[in-house]
């Protein structure tokens, strides 16, 4: 991950974690302390993993449940937490989660109403509704950004790792160029045998070193990478295929297919994930007659 794009926000996350830690430390009640510690774990995970969507998908419901439990257990001490519901709507999450948050917000507000009295309960409820609407408005404003992010081609600023969206486009382009320029193009999908961030990073670096500047390296899913290999003819393609597979086979499983009009990289990635052998080369099925 790129430290350059991470530092200030990680700092803010850690600051938030620190503040929650102090709250937990000053707290006497063990249950409340337990809830706050769970929140600290969630926030710390996000501090290091906030770029991944998966981290957000499980942290938002976790935080919602923790806040609900906190409001249920100690309604008056942490009443201020009730205003965090509209903020949770802003975090990246699927749409059903936003509706679930509306329900949890109502429950949370219900927990604090007993000590408040009728007037303040009604006012705080109406105000919470208004703030939830504002939260939804802000979430909608961010939707456009989310869509653009999903559609973007280049995944990281400093090296050329491209998105699946771009791979689909490039496959079409390469198919037409293959016919026009009489070159040979094939798609190589590769998956490291080891899991984990470091194995993927090493593989990415090795792939970048093995391909030419005009061939792209793509991200198919979290575990699978793809490379478009372009060679003069089938003979050259076989030479390169051999060179690359001997280089990578020790740590990865590889599947190669010639570029064809309906070649689906995701399907190829699935086939790779269930493949037994280290290397599988799909033969060309189309006849050129």
């Amino acid at each position: 991950m790129q430290s350059k794009y991470k530092t200030p926000l990680t700092g803010l996350f850690l600051l938030g974690t620190g503040l929650v830690t102090i709250t937990a430390w000053r707290e006497d009640d063990p249950i409340t302390q337990g809830l706050l510690i769970a929140a600290i774990i969630g926030l710390t995970t996000l501090a290091w993993r906030h770029l991944s969507r998966r981290a957000w998908t499980w942290t938002v419901p976790l935080c919602a449940l923790l806040l609900l439990a906190l409001l249920w257990h100690a309604p008056m001490t942490y009443a201020i937490g009730v205003w965090l519901w509209p903020i949770m709507l802003l975090a990246p999450q699927p749409r059903p989660m936003r509706y679930a948050l509306l329900v949890t917000a109502t429950l949370g507000w219900w927990h604090i109403q007993a000590p408040l009295g009728v007037a303040q309960t009604a006012l705080s409820g109406a105000l919470l509704t208004a703030l939830m609407a504002l939260g939804f408005a802000k979430a909608i404003e961010h939707n456009r950004l989310r869509l653009e992010l999903e559609r973007r081609h280049r995944l990281t600023p400093e090296n050329s790792l491209w998105s699946l969206h771009r791979l689909r486009q490039d496959l079409n382009v390469e198919w037409s160029r293959r016919q026009r320029e009489n070159v040979y193009a094939e798609l190589l999908v590769v998956r490291p045998r080891q899991r984990g961030h470091n194995a993927r990073r090493r593989l990415k670096e090795r792939l970048a070193a093995l391909i030419y500047v005009f061939e792209g390296c793509y991200h198919v899913d979290t575990q699978t990478f793809a490379v478009l290999l372009i060679s003069k003819d089938e003979h050259h393609a076989a030479l390169r295929r051999d060179a690359i597979s001997t280089e990578l086979q020790e740590h990865c499983r590889i599947r190669i297919a010639p570029v064809a009009p309906h070649l689906d990289p995701v399907k190829l990635g699935h086939e790779l994930s269930v493949q037994d052998s280290g290397l599988h080369v799909r033969q060309e099925t189309t006849d050129h007659a």
Partner: peptide, 18 residues
Amino acid sequence: GLQYFTLVIISILPLGWY
């Protein structure tokens, strides 16, 4: 103060991400 600043910092996190 603790409650106020915790709220301020945590509420800014999703926006910082965006």
